[in-house]
Nucleic acid binder design. Sequence first.
DNA 1: ATGAACTTTCAGTAAATCCTGAAAGAAGAT
DNA 2: ATCTTCTTTCAGGATTTACTGAAAGTTCAT
Lengths: 173, 173
Amino acid sequence: MISEAVNLEAARDEFVTQWGIMGAQWGINRTMAQIHALLMTAPDVMSTDEVMATLEISRGNAHTNLKDLVSWGLIRIVTKKGERKEFFEAEKDVWEIFRRVARERKRREIEPALETLRNCKAASEDMKSPEGRAFHEQMDQLEDFVSFASRMGDRVASMQHGKAIKLAMKFFS
Amino acid sequence: MISEAVNLEAARDEFVTQWGIMGAQWGINRTMAQIHALLMTAPDVMSTDEVMATLEISRGNAHTNLKDLVSWGLIRIVTKKGERKEFFEAEKDVWEIFRRVARERKRREIEPALETLRNCKAASEDMKSPEGRAFHEQMDQLEDFVSFASRMGDRVASMQHGKAIKLAMKFFS
DNA sequence: ATGAACTTTCAGTAAATCCTGAAAGAAGAT
DNA sequence: ATCTTCTTTCAGGATTTACTGAAAGTTCAT
């Protein structure tokens, strides 16, 4: 059926577009999110040229974002024997995607933020003025919360999908 | 002690700067995050002019971002009797801040994303080709995960701080 | 009604971000 | 050693996003 293929392409397109928008809202480069969406829904591995052609983007753009996705652990490089080219394949398991994003965002963004909070906390440790005390208190609470959330994230991200679901069920009881 | 006031200002500055950077990484306008940081650590309410002066930004910029912060529920307008001016005050309770951000991001970003996923899922519902089935399956898993996470978020955000901590403790056991 | 004090909007500009395309680099094939 | 195929880099350009400053709007007092 011709129309099914057409519909599929349209649906995939919508998904790619929307995933791009969503990525942008969360501080991820639009193209990177689009490539991710494309590969997540690709029936097969894709080459750089195929990605370029599908999204109508330049080689440089495709290359950079593919490599970024690799560094986030969201896609991997696959080589076919007899071919010199690199192909790319996305992690498709949703839980695994979540875990990897969580791990990277923690490493790249949460840890540095915690560092700052600790600095600010330390810098105001011995202040005597009410303003100084209040600032210190605020930094302390923020640091507590962020490090706590970070540990929670670790914990969740280190779980198997099944265990997480079970725990969540308990949570809803 | 003069130096304490100087140190405090420096620490606060570092916090404001870093909170701005962090915000930007998470898709929040830098200035908005900076104003938020400023108000979170303000010993007192602040006027638009005070914010403008402290961050060296224009009236338009200050105004827009202050109103955005109000719409996120992260700061509130305070009026002093006898004064016509509006002053602003930040929510300082970290758990409350978290709840409000979670609620807004859900409303503004998660819900529309879910809508798309459901569309894509529905559009590929009856497809027979392996590619169509695979796409549908992927959309289904994503939708499941996102809606599940969203409900979890609701649940957590509706809890009192104390209850959340208790639950988390159980979680670590 | 007029004016003073403040808020809101928005056209134009500035800045940050992202993308392109071409050139340079790498590495296997002949 | 040279060619071919593919990857990587990056200066310059394009696009998006954010900011400014001034004008218009609002509200209250006189």
